[in-house]
């Protein structure tokens, strides 16, 4: 250690004393604190299925593929979302679009919701505002396969 004049004085834990060592005052303090919560009778939780909390703005739930004015998917299969996805849960296969004003569209667009971490990077990366995260968060299914959402499922979200 040495005697460095500029050294910060070392902080020593305060001496507890006998009573402190027995922890009894601290325990009593803690018990009073929790008793206070019992008496307070103030709940932070909701009766979940009956009452639902409105998601906060920007809540990241399940994905949706958006449609343009003509009802076609906006997605142009640019792979930006699958490239940026840290969970590698987006699988895209592109094909030529059948429409004259567009060149490319996804033939297959699958999101593995079981792998998705709902980080929202896909939404952030999308140049066409074609993918977005909805506020939907509780869609239980019975098999894993059902959690791999295909294009139709994502478009209907």
């Amino acid at each position: 250690m040495g005697h460095d004049a500029h050294a910060e004085p070392e902080k020593k834990p305060g001496k507890l004393g006998l009573l402190g060592k027995a922890y009894l005052p601290a325990i009593a303090q803690g018990l009073l604190h929790t008793l206070g919560h019992i008496v307070k009778w103030d709940h932070n939780t909701l009766n979940y299925p009956d009452e639902k909390r409105a998601p906060f703005p920007g809540y990241r739930g399940e994905h949706r593929l958006t449609r343009d004015e003509q009802g076609r998917e906006k997605c142009v299969a640019c792979f930006m979302c699958s490239t940026v996805c840290p969970a590698h849960c987006i699988e895209i296969v592109a094909e030529e679009a059948p429409w004259p004003d567009r060149e490319k569209r996804p033939k297959i667009f699958n999101i593995d919701m079981m792998r998705c971490i709902y980080c929202g990077m896909c939404e952030w990366a999308c140049p066409c505002e074609a993918i977005e995260l909805t506020e939907v968060f509780n869609i239980p299914v019975r098999t894993r396969a059902e959690k791999i959402y295909d294009k139709e499922r994502l478009l209907s979200n």
Partner: peptide
């Protein structure tokens, strides 16, 4: 500005 659909991107 069609880098997203351009194969050269």
């Amino acid at each position: 500005l069609d880098c997203p659909v351009c194969d050269k991107a």
